[in-house]
């Protein structure tokens, strides 16, 4: 279990999010504090603004009202300082680059250009996601799970304090997904990053998260924030078969049903 500090990584106060030109906000009145080193999973029915929240933190979408601070500064500032990494639902690898060159992309653009030390670090991150032996392949030679691992290695390349993951394993089969979940937890323990992880799966939300944030739709809003610490054993591994876990899963299912209307 990572030590959850008292320092705040992300803070939102009556945050409202929406797309320019649309009258209806996607998400409103969000109050949320995420501590540094925390693993927060975000669950909600479709259209509740889960991805929108991540996009705002990554400075892909400006807030329409309220306040959002990322590591104590505006989201744009945190992005410019390379403190936020983003893993998209699709791996979004550039097909003309090898796996290694894809992982190196963050070092070739923006602030992170330190071209000289590129090679060893790329290999280091690829090793961490278990793909060092495939670094000369092209993305179309990889499976979906491998591609997503490369995109995680690319996000880790900037050594972000905050890692935002937008349903990264949503398109994968369950066995691959389980394995990647365990890998992600071990990466989290090693890097001490703060992770916000959007998912559709209740099981995944319970297994990964230290806390789970449940959003409701129409209008998008925060519905509940549930602490999952009681489910973790002394090593921080989730006892997902325990009666408590079943109970929380049932509770989450009910919340999703109520919030979907």
């Amino acid at each position: 279990m990572n030590p959850v500090t008292n320092e705040i990584a992300i803070e939102a106060r009556s945050l409202g999010l929406g797309y320019p030109g649309s009258m209806q906000p996607v998400l409103e009145g969000v109050d949320l504090s995420v501590a540094k080193g925390e693993f927060l999973t975000i669950l909600g029915p479709s259209g509740c603004g889960k991805s929108t929240l991540l996009r705002a933190i990554a400075d892909l979408l400006p807030p329409i009202n309220g306040r959002l601070s990322v590591l104590g500064k505006p989201a744009a500032e945190a992005r410019r300082q390379r403190e936020v990494g983003f893993v998209f639902q699709e791996a979004t690898l550039l097909p003309w680059r090898t796996v290694r060159d894809n992982v190196c992309l963050p070092l070739q653009v923006g602030k992170g250009r330190i071209a000289k030390s590129v090679q060893p670090r790329a290999d280091h991150w690829l090793e961490l996601v278990g793909l060092a032996h495939l670094s000369d392949r092209y993305p179309n030679q990889l499976s979906g799970g491998q591609r997503q691992r490369v995109s995680i290695a690319r996000a880790l390349q900037c050594e972000p304090d905050i890692l935002l993951m937008d349903e990264p394993f949503g398109a994968l089969d369950e066995i691959t997904r389980d394995r990647l979940n365990d890998e992600l937890l071990s990466i989290w323990r090693r890097t001490h990053a703060t992770i916000l992880f959007v998912t559709h799966s209740i099981t995944e939300a319970i297994y990964l998260g230290g806390r789970v944030l449940v959003l409701a739709a129409n209008p998008g809003r925060c519905q509940a924030l549930i602490d999952l610490a009681s489910l973790k054993d002394e090593n921080g591994v989730c006892r997902r078969e325990s009666p408590q876990a079943q109970e929380i899963a049932a509770q989450l299912r009910q919340l999703l049903r109520d919030g979907g209307a």
């Binding site: 992005r79 410019r80 390379r82 983003f86 979004t92 550039l94 923006g110």
Partner: peptide, 11 residues
Amino acid sequence: NELELMHVLSA
């Protein structure tokens, strides 16, 4: 997605 990736990387 690719354009957003470049934005997140502050390209």
